[in-house]
Design a protein around this nucleic acid. Structure first.
Length: 741
DNA sequence: GACCAGCCGTTTTTT
DNA sequence: ACGGCTGGTC
């Protein structure tokens, strides 16, 4: 199997060849760790004769799992590749639990609650406990519960550990939350891990089965594992100790969701006989990009495994630092630059990615890109599976799989409207609670004995109608394939008509298209045995990440958050919004640890770039309604100025490109028409606008332009003017606009 | 119970 | 600026 080891550097080769015992691979960005992982698996099988059935690989996203499988198919053939176990922690745990959760006295057709379901359940908990949602933010309480679960702390232990008043509240919520989850036969994301650990803990025989089976364990992105994942790995690896973990503490960016970087830092303590292999040759980026990345990360504190990354790639073009006037100017710069690179043949759209800290930043980009006619794909934001109509439709399918899922049940109890209002719903849930059964069970009781229930005849009819709909789906699920089930559902609830009735022409089309996308996705489960189609579908829907939806075929620019960009690479990368308050984010600036995590986030972003890197920030930025002056990110100061190229700033001295295109009109959206501004308030400033749409003006630097709109903002007049190159927003008190004729 | 108008909070990142 | 929620009305 010499060809498996060819083209590997000595360190990579050692990582691939070290077959037995614990191994820690400290892998810098772009150091070929994916290659090492796949080649090591192939090597195990081809060179040492390992049975693929005995290999377990844990990846960070489902996409990474799929890619790993594809690569392995090429290396060792589809049959062998299929026998491997590859997946994320969550999907693997879901698989283990489907098989063995019965040992914990639970049913295997459990539902998986996503963040939206979790929040709804939390609200229900607060209501049950008579706590005010305003006073106790459901998300805050849930976050606390979630981190407890990641630490494998049960409600009982939590009660013992915590003494603050808030924690008293959380304790009660945690208990109730678990009770309701159990009643609904549901697990949340954190439970998938927690319950698996509990299963292995309480049933050594079950654990032994997995331990015997998996001779070889491989874990990618080990720096982002949380305590539960750490324990899980420890359990599985305890017997054979062939544990191969790959990670880089410098790229640890998920501390906020419980990831504990100590897991990787202390690996050598946990496994004293571990071999440590450092991969520090970078194959991805140019020297300029690497130098920039090094400068940013080296200024950080408390690092271990310090690597000096190097590359044999050339210096490449200098990294560009760009200041835009505001977020729109920043976005226009990005769009222009991409258009330029594509026009000159230096890049294709698909080679370019724009990365940002928060999803909200994507708006300005989308606008600028579409104005320039640059195709793009937006990752994240409103995630597909979380769109209302998708989740509503899904709720029916989830009920077909598990009718005790009360969160899904309340979600569609009156959707589409069928005359079951708030009162009836409250009545139903109170009644169910008094019987101590899930809502579905209460409906069943009602069916059996309508007289015994506290409902009006009208309500009874409506509730029975709903029950028979659900029961119809449950019956259909047993005998019809998934796609048929969906068709039947669409027909029974008149889904298309419902969408049009509810959302009107404009948005119904899009929502209906989403339902069709859902159906298209479901069609992929066609080949499976009937009884597996629905559960598999639901499980994947709950656990797919949005990055999984990136279409690498499409020739389009990728817009993505820095977090989601981890593990990806692009020839051309724009990092936008490198400002104080955004990166580092304002919510992270008062805590040393979190601040360092923000720094690493920038490091991750920089190292996504292969050839060209643009670092962008804006002079002012609009957040909510307000426009504020912003300061460049403190991290930029850590980069030696000599590494950076600053193109002509959009200031008085710079001549903008000749106006190839006519001045653009502001994109017209319904409701975006100009209106007379609100009456003034601030003292001293103008009390009414003095510029009007259509008026011609001249600016000392930007030349002549046409007023698009004007409004009063904070006692000043903000005028939007379309100049030859583009639209700019100017403050009248500051910009000295000369009125023309 | 359905519909409408106005209000509030939202934004950090995600399996 | 938007969407989801509240409170009012039919």
């Amino acid at each position: 199997m010499s060809n498996l080891l060819e083209n590997l550097n000595p360190a990579q080769r050692r990582a691939v060849e070290t077959v037995a015992g614990p191994v820690l691979v400290v892998a810098g960005p772009g150091s070929g760790k994916t290659r090492v992982l796949t080649h090591r698996i192939a090597y195990l099988i081809a060179a040492t004769g390992a049975d693929p059935f005995t290999i377990l690989a844990v990846t960070f996203t489902n996409k990474a799992a799929r890619e790993m499988n594809e690569r392995l198919e090429a290396l060792i053939g589809p049959a062998q590749a299929r026998a491997l176990t590859v997946g994320t922690f969550h999907s693997l745990c879901a698989r283990f639990l489907r098989r063995d959760i019965v040992h914990l006295g639970r049913e295997r057709d459990f539902a998986i609650y996503d963040s939206d379901d979790q929040e709804r359940l939390m609200r229900r908990v607060l209501r049950d406990l008579n706590l005010n949602e305003k006073q106790y933010a459901p998300r805050a309480i849930h976050a606390r519960i979630s981190s407890a679960k990641n630490e494998l702390i049960s409600p009982q232990e939590f009660a013992r550990l915590n003494r603050s008043y808030f924690d008293e509240i959380v304790t009660r919520c945690y208990e109730r939350y678990q009770t309701l989850l159990r009643e609904a036969n549901a697990l949340d994301f954190d439970d998938l891990l927690f319950e698996t650990v509990r299963l292995f803990d309480q049933h050594p025989d079950v654990l032994a089965r997995y331990q015997e089976r998996y001779l070889y364990l491989l874990v990618d992105e080990y720096q982002d594992t949380n305590h539960a994942q750490y324990v899980l790995i420890k359990q599985l690896a305890a017997r054979h100790r062939n544990l191969f973990v790959v990670g880089d503490a410098d790229q640890s960016i998920y501390g906020w969701r419980g990831a504990d970087v100590r897991n990787i830092l202390q690996f050598e303590q946990d496994y004293p006989d571990a071999r440590v292999i450092v991969l520090d040759q970078n194959y991805r980026s140019t020297q300029s990009i690497l130098d920039t990345a090094q400068a940013v990360i080296a200024a950080g504190t408390k690092r271990k495994h310090i690597k000096q990354l190097w590359t044999a790639n050339g210096a490449g073009p200098q990294v560009t630092l760009h200041e835009g006037y505001d977020q729109d100017a920043e976005a226009s710069f990005v769009a222009d630059e991409i258009a330029r690179l594509v026009a000159t043949g230096e890049a294709r759209y698909r080679d370019c990615a724009v990365m940002y800290r928060t999803n909200a930043q994507s708006r300005a980009l989308e606008e600028a890109l579409s104005r320039r006619g640059v195709p793009y794909q937006l990752i994240g934001g409103l995630r597909f599976w979380e769109r209302k109509e998708v989740k509503d439709t899904l709720a029916y399918l989830r009920l077909a799989a598990n009718p005790y899922d009360s969160i899904s049940l309340t979600r569609v109890l009156n959707w589409p409207a069928r005359g079951i209002g708030e009162r009836t719903e409250a009545e139903l849930s109170r009644w169910a609670e008094s019987l101590g059964v899930p809502l579905y069970q209460a409906l069943k009781e009602l069916e059996a004995d309508p007289a015994g229930a506290p409902f009006s005849p009208r309500a009874v009819t409506a509730l029975r109608g709903f029950l028979s709909l659900i029961d119809g789906l449950i019956a259909a699920r047993r005998e019809a394939p998934l796609l048929k089930l969906i068709e039947m559902l669409v027909e029974r609830i008149e889904l298309r008509e419902t969408l049009f009735r509810e959302y009107g022409e404009e948005s119904a089309d899009e929502r209906w298209a989403n339902i069709q996308e859902l159906a298209a996705f479901a069609a992929r489960y066609d080949g499976l045995p009937l009884e597996q189609q629905l559960p598999q579908f639901l499980e994947e829907v709950a656990l797919v990440a949005d990055v999984d939806r990136i279409d690498p075929q499409a020739d389009a620019v990728t817009c993505i958050t820095l977090h989601q960009a981890k593990g990806l690479e692009y020839p051309v990368v724009f990092l936008v919004g490198l400002e104080e308050g955004l990166l580092p984010h304002s919510r992270s600036t008062d805590d040393r640890e979190r601040l360092e995590e923000e720094r690493r986030l920038l490091y991750v972003g920089i190292t996504r770039a292969r050839q060209r890197l643009y670092l962008c920030y804006a002079f002012r930025r609009e957040s909510f309604n307000r426009s504020n002056i912003s300061k460049p990110s403190r991290f930029l100061a850590d980069i030696p100025p000599g590494l950076l190229k600053r193109p002509g700033r959009p200031s008085a001295s710079t001549r903008v490109r000749p106006a190839a295109a006519p001045a653009r009109q502001r994109p017209t959206r319904p409701g975006d028409t100009w209106r007379a501004p609100a009456p003034p308030r601030a003292a001293g400033g103008p009390t009414e606008v003095s510029f009007f749409p259509g008026q011609r003006v001249r600016h000392s630097a930007f030349g002549e332009g046409v007023v698009v709109s004007s409004r009063l903002v904070d006692g000043d007049e903000e005028v939007t003017v379309s100049f030859a190159d583009r639209e700019r927003r100017l403050l009248a008190s500051f910009a000295r606009l000369e009125r023309l004729k």
